[in-house]
């Protein structure tokens, strides 16, 4: 995917050789730094941008065809709506565009307004909506016609913890109903909580893809031990094995580099009369994985602003 930022400016490659397959009924996390090409890829999938080469299908329908968009519900990043329409009118408008019969769209709109806790704002014009409320309505309009595929661009950005929880629950609810959810996010905690599969892109290229558990290293990075009954000055023999040792109230903590060292430290602590309260190995988190795979790649260069894309 190449875009031309201006007549006298150099053409930029926004996406290159992005090859993805999203399994039906899964939640697919699409990760990348700012400017990696996530929004460009999503806009291409929903018909807002045209790829200079390559093809994509949604449930067998070519994305260049109008039929593909019948199967997709889309929420852009920071969605905006017509200021003078109320929430109910906004959903009714999108329902009409999706070809829903009147009765059906009214019923669905009422359901979704309740689901997203917007009942009090049903007849409030959109210009009075907060960012969080707009975000919820954005997801509601994407789910309105019960599409088998939902594509969300940064659905949790800028939301408070409760708002993020609601969106996360809605995404899980969609999967439970057999819907495929494809979403981009910066909030890696949310991605690792709900995604079945992730893809990381960097500078427009895919650098890894797969089920989350297969991507994250199962190697133990460090082990944390906590014991009660240790003397106030600590236990130097055990502390010598640790990267860090400290007291936290009644507990004596040690952070060691390997499971083998943890077993040795545990034996020493128990020999000195301490009681082990915690022994927790830390494996790689999605955030550590993300930093590892994108950190090896070169930094993202400054890119000129381009129609609200990242």
């Amino acid at each position: 995917m190449v875009y031309n930022p201006g007549i006298f400016q150099k053409r930029k490659i926004a996406l290159e050789g992005l090859d993805l397959e999203v399994p039906r009924g899964s939640i697919f996390g699409f990760l990348g730094q700012n400017g990696a090409g996530k929004t460009t890829a999503i806009k291409t999938l929903v018909g807002l941008q045209y790829a200079t080469s390559g093809r994509a299908w949604v449930l067998g329908a070519d994305i260049r065809e109008r039929g593909a968009r019948e199967k997709v519900g889309f929420m852009p990043e920071n969605p905006y709506f017509y200021e003078y329409l109320t929430a109910a009118e906004t959903l009714d408008f999108y329902g009409q565009l999706s070809g829903m019969p009147r009765e059906n769209r009214r019923k669905r709109a009422a359901e979704l307004i309740e689901l997203f806790g917007l009942g009090h704002a049903r007849d409030v014009p959109m210009r009075q909506f907060s960012k969080g409320m707009r975000q919820r309505l954005g997801l509601a309009q994407a789910m309105l016609h019960e599409p088998p595929v939902v594509i969300l661009d940064e659905p949790m950005s800028g939301l408070d913890p409760l708002g993020r929880r609601d969106i996360r629950n809605a995404i899980l609810g969609l999967r439970d109903k057999g819907c495929t959810v494809f979403f981009s996010s910066h909030i890696l905690g949310d991605v690792s909580d709900i995604c079945d599969r992730v893809c990381v892109i960097h500078l427009g290229k895919k650098i890894s893809e797969g089920p989350l558990h297969s991507l994250l290293s199962s190697r133990v990075l460090e082990v944390e031990l906590a014991a009660s009954g240790a003397p106030a000055e600590g236990i130097p023999e055990a502390a010598a094995l640790a990267r860090r040792a400290w007291h936290d109230g009644a507990l004596y903590h040690l952070l060691v580099d390997s499971e083998e060292a943890a077993q040795k430290a545990k034996a020493i602590l128990e020999a000195k009369g301490a009681i082990i309260r915690l022994l927790m190995p830390h494996v790689e988190s999605l955030e550590e994985y993300f930093v590892r795979v994108t950190g090896e790649a070169p930094k993202v260069p400054e890119r000129p602003a381009h129609g609200g894309s990242e």
């Binding site: 109008r66 039929g67 929420m75 852009p76 709506f81 070809g99 309009q141």
Partner: peptide, 16 residues
């Protein structure tokens, strides 16, 4: 419509 991005949710619907 482009500037306020109201267009995004409309053009992603099954319309030409």
């Amino acid at each position: 419509e482009i500037d306020k991005r109201t267009l995004y949710t409309i053009l992603s619907k099954p319309i030409d």
